[in-house]
Each structure stands twice: as C-alpha cells, then as structure tokens.
C-alpha cells in the first residue's frame, strides 16, 4: 500500500490543461496544409498525382479534400512541392463539403443545433464502432480516456452498449463485412442521436478508397454530424472536434 502511494507521488499529476492551454505538439506534426505559392496557370498535375484523390483544381486554385488527405510525409501531389503541412491541429467540421480547403478561413465545427445541444451538451455518451479501422484511430480515441486528456471531465464518455449511447463514433473505411453491424448499432441507439466519423477511412475510405471491399465513407450510409480528418487524427484534433460539437470551445481559438 505504501509502495503504491509513494509511486503515485513519484508519477505526479499529469492531466493536461486543455482546453485552457493549447497543447504542445511535436514540431514535425503534420496538420492543416498550407500553400506556399499560387498554382501555375493550367497546371492540373495534382488531380492525377495524389494516389487518394485528395487534390483538385477549383477556380484555378488547388483545393485539398481534407477528408481524403492522409497528410503524407512525402506528399506526392504537387510536383512543385507547394503543399506544406502546418502544426495546426484543429480540423473538425460539420459538413462534408467544408473539408475542401484551398487556403484562407476554415469553417471549424459549430455546436449542435439548440434542441440536441440542450440534451447532449453536458453529457454525451458515445458508442465507438471500429469498422475495418487499422486500430490507430481506435487507439487515439481510447487515449482520450487516459488521465492526460481525461475525457470524463467534459461529460463525454465511451459506453459499452448502443442502448446507453447518445450517438456513434465510427472509425475505419466500413468494410462490406461491417456494413450491417454498423447500421444495426446505429439503429440500437435511441434518438435524438449524433454520428461522428474519425479519420480519413471513415470519411471517404482513406488508403482504401479504391478497394472493392470498402464503402467510400460512412456518410453514404448515415447522416454525419461531425467530421474529424487525419490519418491518424491527433488526439487533440479529436478532442477539439468533440468539444466544439457540444459548444465547449469558442469559435476561433
């Protein structure tokens, strides 16, 4: 018993101060892309070069679909290397089309509409479903329960049964073999409910966008309330998104 107490003292207090203080991320962390210069006239190389179809030209400018982007360290999309990844980790949005980013203002997720916010804003129970996820997004959802992030202090909790949940949080490209299990789990959640997708796979197939064994994104099956991009999203990206959804973070900042 004394051993446990002395070890407890040695290990110290470790819960982070987020969201009052911004997290310190690794300098090499790849977040929100930036464009170093204008695209040369008529260049459309990126549309062909990104293996995951994340880049496209819109109004003469490159746009990156953050729902498809894997934030590759050796991004192959731009032959001129115009894409840099910044340290900005806040990436969650409410609508699929908002993930198409070509610089400038980024529409970070707004809170749920008043009816659901009133019910769920102070207590949000989620049933996590891994639907062919590679266990990285799953691990970084799990980590939110550790004492560093201490998800419970925000009233958010991952629960064992969909019957006890207010919504589902899905990871993975939704394989053919998981499709009916995902739909059954969603059905088992009592309404009103929320649907959250975490990671490029669940948003649009990720590295498996061209596989015949996956569904290209959960929103082809269910209405999605929150998109959290990345491969794998940083835990703070996920937490920031969840807090924005329940109105616990100011709009910019």
């Amino acid at each position: 018993m004394l051993d446990i107490i002395s070890e407890r003292i040695r290990q110290g207090f470790r819960t982070g101060k987020f969201p009052k203080e911004e997290p310190k991320l690794a300098p090499r962390f790849r977040g929100m892309p930036e464009f170093s210069s204008e695209c040369p006239q008529g260049c459309q190389a990126c549309e062909q070069l990104c293996p995951f179809d994340a880049c496209m030209i819109r109004n003469g400018k490159m746009a990156i679909d953050l729902g498809r982007c894997l934030f590759c360290a050796d991004c192959q999309a731009c032959p001129e290397h115009r894409i840099n990844f910044s340290n900005e980790y806040r990436l969650a949005v409410r609508n699929r089309q908002e993930l198409l980013y070509s610089g400038g203002e980024y529409p970070l997720a707004k809170p749920l509409e008043p009816a659901r916010l009133k019910l769920l804003g102070r207590s949000l129970k989620l049933r996590q479903i891994s639907a062919a996820g590679c266990n990285a997004c799953e691990a970084d959802c799990n980590v939110l329960g550790t004492l560093v992030f201490d998800l419970g202090r925000f009233g958010i909790q991952f629960v064992a049964s969909p019957r006890h949940a207010d919504g589902i949080l899905v990871t993975g490209p939704v394989s053919e073999n998981m499709r009916s299990a995902v739909l059954d789990t969603y059905e088992a959640v009592p309404g009103p409910k929320v649907v959250i997708v975490v990671g490029a796979c669940a948003i649009n197939g990720g590295p498996f966008i061209h596989s015949s064994e996956t569904t290209k994104g959960l929103d082809s099956l269910l209405p999605v309330d929150l998109y959290i991009p990345g491969c794998t999203p940083q835990p703070y990206t996920i937490l920031d998104g969840l807090l924005r959804l329940i109105g616990r973070r100011e709009q910019r900042g």
Binding site: F52, Q76, A136, A139, P207
Partner: peptide, 14 residues
C-alpha cells in the same frame, strides 16, 4: 503503386 506505402502502414495501424 503510389498508394502502396500508405496501405502497408495501415495493414495494422499499431
């Protein structure tokens, strides 16, 4: 393929 490396890294993400 250009997509192969990302798929290899996600065979098992852990």
């Amino acid at each position: 393929h250009p997509s192969t490396m990302a798929q290899m890294e996600t065979i098992a993400g852990d």
